[in-house]
């Protein structure tokens, strides 16, 4: 006995509390337990192609996995060139999203909760996740792909780094995922929607996709969105833009007109309709549309220039 009894009484609970805290940050809360129990059976997507990471390329490896699973033949080395930052020794989240777009896949960032992630996995879509395997102050960032889970055993199954079908205790994994802000993303072919698309966020996602993707891929994505939200002007504007890029002027005109049917004064649709009408040999119709935009703060200048062109063509055609 080197210590007095009061000292031991003070020290022991403190040590126990600390140990519990260490384990506790990896604990499964009631919400996570419910999320897991919502699925009666174990799920594993098969087969999910596995790209073992080389060097510090967990980003390209994880991206290759989800792109391949969504039907895109990928070249791992090409992906390294597209997303890896040599002097940072890693890959940024935003570059993974950008690279998916460049491959005509829609990157959809899930809501930061376990239920959303498990639901997508159960629907057969592997989920790319960011993990922090260090601690908050000394982070070690890692990307992996969730391909399955087992509610009974409370385990999660991943392709991670150099390990295929790695099974980890859900508690441990949740800790790493939570420390990384619960960031999770799926790669969608243009003809698919996520299970739970938030309308506004999905429209923004497609607008960002349209700029980068091939026009036929963008057109398909907008058409799917129009089936879901036909009263949204943007889904028709997007279709018009894609049709125009495909050289289908009549279809572009119809799409922009539809946008104006559901939202009569939509400025972008008004402007784009006018531009396509000029090119499609109906400049006099374009003049009327452009005149409504002359007071618009963001478009007055462009509308003014285009109006001159439209008037000139219209006069010539008379």
């Amino acid at each position: 006995m080197t210590r007095s009894a009061p000292e031991r009484l003070l020290g022991l609970p403190a040590l126990l509390t600390t140990l519990l805290a260490l384990a506790g940050c990896a604990g499964l809360g009631p919400m996570q337990r419910d999320a897991l129990q919502a699925f009666p059976e174990a799920v594993q997507i098969e087969p999910v192609p596995f790209y073992p990471q080389t060097d510090m390329h967990c980003g390209p490896a994880a991206l290759a996995t989800v792109l391949d699973q969504s039907g895109i033949a990928v070249d791992y080395d090409h992906l390294v060139d597209r997303v890896y930052l040599p002097d940072r020794g890693g890959t940024l989240q935003v570059e993974l999203l950008a690279a998916a777009r460049s491959h005509d896949r829609i990157p959809w960032v899930l809501d930061p909760d376990l239920s959303a992630l498990l639901a997508e996995v159960a629907a057969g879509r592997p989920v790319l996740v960011l993990e922090n395997q260090g601690v908050r102050r000394v982070p070690y960032w890692h990307y992996a792909v969730v391909i399955g889970f087992d509610p009974d055993q409370a385990r999660i199954i991943q392709h991670s780094g150099t390990e295929a079908e790695l099974s980890r205790p859900m508690r441990r994994w949740l800790r790493d995922w939570t420390l990384a802000g619960r960031w999770a993303v799926i790669s969608l072919p243009p003809d698919q929607l996520p299970l739970d698309p938030n309308r506004e966020r999905w429209l923004q996602t497609l607008a960002d996709f349209e700029v980068v993707a091939e026009p036929d891929a963008a057109l398909t994505a907008w058409q799917r969105a129009a089936e879901r939200w036909p009263d949204e002007a943007l889904v028709w504007l997007g279709q018009g833009n894609s049709q125009y890029r495909l050289g289908a002027l009549d279809e572009a005109v119809s799409a922009f007109e539809q946008a104006l049917t559901v939202h009569p004064d939509q400025p972008a649709a008004t402007f784009n309709l006018a531009v396509v009408l000029i090119e499609n040999g109906q400049p006099c119709r374009a003049v009327d549309h452009l005149q409504t935009l002359l007071q618009h703060p963001a478009l007055e200048e462009r509308a003014g220039h285009t109006l001159e062109t439209a008037r000139a063509s219209c006069n010539r055609s008379r």
Binding site: C58, T91, Q93, Q133, Y140, H142, G161
Partner: peptide
């Protein structure tokens, strides 16, 4: 400030 996932598990 942005996380850059690297995944050096052994060192980790």
């Amino acid at each position: 400030e942005l996380p850059a996932g690297a995944g050096v598990i052994e060192v980790l």
